[in-house]
């Protein structure tokens, strides 16, 4: 159960290797969470999640469970949620942190690859987040934290495949939040700017960057407040209020 100061006991991380997701999980563990489920591809076989689990145990987690999860296997997402519940009981916080940034030029050269990436960044979230929402509604509490991005707030020429998928995800998360209003379950939409991680290593830093830890701190603070939307850093809320109204002719020519 979430307590009065925003701490939770159980965490399900969808995207169990995500740097941002792990930073959030670690932050929640330091705040008192004891049981974590890491859902990822090759969770047990192949790459495994030993390092990730170790990091969370070092932070104080009593239990870390790996669970097999592939964004593309939309039919299996309800089972993933059910398995997590079987392992740790009620899901107090679910962090949706999987996705693919990719390279815009490569996407334009290979439309099928672009669609596959968009499936990991958007469609896979439709099934996963709906399955999570159904569970949260049933248990009458719990927060779904969705890693959206400023890239989806207004889609840019430089990364419009990713941006469009993020725009879809952001809309999905908002709609889900409204659908869950009054059920005890909630959705928190997180919109970071540039965060240096393995995902973004190939693109140069944008203005107003934030570290994965800063994203984690902002999420923890948001949980305490019961926030619906969190921008990281906070100033991006105002930056993007301006970006949204820039004329198309100017927007189109933005370098990145």
């Amino acid at each position: 159960m979430r307590n009065a100061v925003g701490a939770v006991d159980t965490v399900l991380l969808l995207g169990g290797r995500s740097e941002i997701g792990l930073a959030i999980a670690e932050r929640l563990v330091r705040g008192g969470a004891r049981r974590v489920v890491l859902a990822a591809r090759e969770a047990t076989g192949g790459r495994g999640l030993a390092g990730e689990a170790e990091r969370l145990r070092a932070a104080g987690a009593a239990e870390v469970h790996p669970v097999e999860f592939d964004a593309a296997d939309t039919a299996g997402h309800e089972a993933v949620v059910a398995e997590a519940v079987k392992l740790v009981g009620d899901l107090d916080a679910v962090v949706d942190a999987f996705g693919v940034l990719g390279e815009q030029a490569a996407f334009e050269a290979d439309p099928a690859a672009a669609a596959a990436a968009a499936a990991a960044t958007f469609t896979g979230h439709v099934s996963a987040d709906l399955a999570v929402a159904a569970r949260l509604r049933e248990q009458g509490h719990g927060t779904l934290v969705v890693l959206s991005s400023v890239a989806g707030v207004r889609v840019r020429r430089a990364n419009f495949v990713y941006g469009a998928a993020k725009a879809g995800l952001d809309g999905l998360a908002q709609g889900l939040g409204d659908a869950l209003h009054g059920t005890g379950a909630r959705v928190m939409v997180v919109r970071p700017g540039y965060v240096p991680t393995k995902m973004s290593a190939h693109v140069s830093a944008a203005p107003f960057p934030a570290s994965a830890r800063e994203v984690a701190d902002a999420v923890a603070a948001g949980l305490r407040r019961g926030a619906e939307t969190v921008w990281v850093p906070g100033v991006l809320r105002y930056v993007f209020a301006g970006m949204r109204v820039l004329p198309r002719s100017v927007w189109r020519r933005l370098p990145r």
Binding site: A4, V5, H141, G184
Partner: peptide
């Protein structure tokens, strides 16, 4: 009474 951590039932 503290109006924290609402849940539905």
């Amino acid at each position: 009474w503290g109006r924290t951590a609402p849940t539905s039932a």
